[in-house]
Design a protein around this nucleic acid. Sequence first.
DNA 1: TGACTTAATGTAATCGGTTACATTAATTGA
DNA 2: TCAATTAATGTAACCGATTACATTAAGTCA
Lengths: 338, 338
Amino acid sequence: MSVKKIAKIAGVSTATVSRVLNGSDKVRESTAKRVMQVVEDMNYRMDHVARRMKVKQTDSLVVGLVITDIDNPFFSSVAKGVEDVVSKNKLVTMICNTNENPEKERFFLNAMLSEKVSGAIIVPTTGNLDFFQDLVDDGFPMVMVDRKPKDLKIDTVSLNNKKGSYEAVKKLIDNGHRRIGFVGGIKGLSNTEERLAGYLEALKESGIQIKDNLIVYGDYVEEGGREAIQEFMSLKKPPTAVFSSNNLMTLGCIKEIYKQKLNIPKDIAIIGFDDSTWAEALIPPLTTVKQPGYELGVNAAELLIKRLKNGKANSIDVVLNPELIVRESCGTKKINIG
Amino acid sequence: MSVKKIAKIAGVSTATVSRVLNGSDKVRESTAKRVMQVVEDMNYRMDHVARRMKVKQTDSLVVGLVITDIDNPFFSSVAKGVEDVVSKNKLVTMICNTNENPEKERFFLNAMLSEKVSGAIIVPTTGNLDFFQDLVDDGFPMVMVDRKPKDLKIDTVSLNNKKGSYEAVKKLIDNGHRRIGFVGGIKGLSNTEERLAGYLEALKESGIQIKDNLIVYGDYVEEGGREAIQEFMSLKKPPTAVFSSNNLMTLGCIKEIYKQKLNIPKDIAIIGFDDSTWAEALIPPLTTVKQPGYELGVNAAELLIKRLKNGKANSIDVVLNPELIVRESCGTKKINIG
DNA sequence: TGACTTAATGTAATCGGTTACATTAATTGA
DNA sequence: TCAATTAATGTAACCGATTACATTAAGTCA
């Protein structure tokens, strides 16, 4: 069914049909009704794709969202936040999953551009930063979320990661720990660096010496957490507490700790990054730095939609604050451990 | 940048540019190189949207995925499965989230059709079944996943829910339980009904009388699980075991059980539906019916892609089998409880 | 070399809409 | 009632690609 056919059946011109469909121009009441009747009868559905060819100012209905791991609850809550805002604006979200692979990321972005999405929200890998900057400079609306690559003039929505990890580590120190292991994510990502920075600052502030063998990277995956604990426990002086910088690695840590028959928090205290719905169902309930994933998504989507409407302007950085949710896995205050 | 401009700059016709771009027809080596050079220099990116207007047999790069709760790990693993297969086929996935709202569902489907997605995978609500059938009859490729509405001639990929819940309940019975609470999902959905059926069959088979007050519906949300436990515990003869038919409700159950200072499995045994990455980190580790969410997604996507290539054929139902992952939350064999 | 075949390229219609401009119908006013 | 004005509708070009068909250039062979 096309406008042409509708026009023929209704006995009017394509222009009239188009006018009726868009409701803008003046059409006689009776004509409009007749056309609408045909539209209904024929079950006509407009081809937005064709429409957009002509109407350039009308953007596509689609907003892109590129994330790195849809299966990670943190990102799925980001996605939900984005989706809620986007659909509230009568748009739809096209989600792609990169698995931290820059090539997939680039492929997806190109596909989205080919498909003429109106803008994109992206959790960037480290691989395509120049490409992104070019796109934005070309006028493609884009917002980065969770990660904040340096030296880019692109809107970002991120968390104050340093503050989050600082507070977590501070808490452990306050509870008497002085050998604290740090399980980092993917090297080179802003959030990894920032979380490390918070850890270092907390230690430094308390005059605790930084030991390289207490700093381990687990690539943000569960297995990485397991390995980190194995590594820590094989030290002659293992840490008495661990700060793990994302939820999957934390889960890996906990499982490994159980496996080694160690007690939380007596043998080893733990604080994780990312609060999850199951964190309080663990025994002992897990102390976490709560990242407002949903809000990150909401903010990113709102920023993007603002950009879609207002076009260019200087780039903006939105920084949300984390919250330390204290539960029992980090132990309680005491003096002189280990 | 358009084909026209490229043609002008390269000093050839649009037809030649198109031929070079598509690599199909014969173009002189030297001409092709010259055109490609301009394409590179000008940073030209083809407008697939325009292309599709003409090339009808070439489907869009986009496959739609409509799920009901992107934030539920089960669905996000389904999404991941779909996404992996789709992107392996050099396509992209457009995900929409309905929150179980049929109106949003319909809106999204229409948007996808307008955007000319090549087909869709959907976790259907109960609200738009006729609409779906119409679409499929009109030749729109569609696969339903997780839920299997009756009387539709549409491909489905689902779980043998009845078997899953039968085995879980059977396990509880084998362990000596005779008062077993059932926490159901959303009434009217096929999976809810099937899970109930498995529960009923297991009881019947063991000659256990079915009690209506041990059957409660929690709408697949965490709060529903909490309320179910509250309701059960307020009975004069509370159940000694609970089977909860999805992960969120299970989490709610567990939290409420802890809150009431009850012991799992001594005071109350529990088996959940959906295995989650955190299930084995709970204490005691949670016995679950493992739904292969990822595989459901993979199968759905493969089925859809087959449809995209081969067109119409009789509809197919793929049924995957669940697996009971026995951990400690369901207790162990003993005789004559309660 | 020139007639004929084949390879390379160009021209213009087309997909399904929108819209500037042209045209026709209805309304107004004296 | 009829010219002038305005409202309603129609005609045709256009968006950015593809492609059937037409045309021109390059080979081939006697």
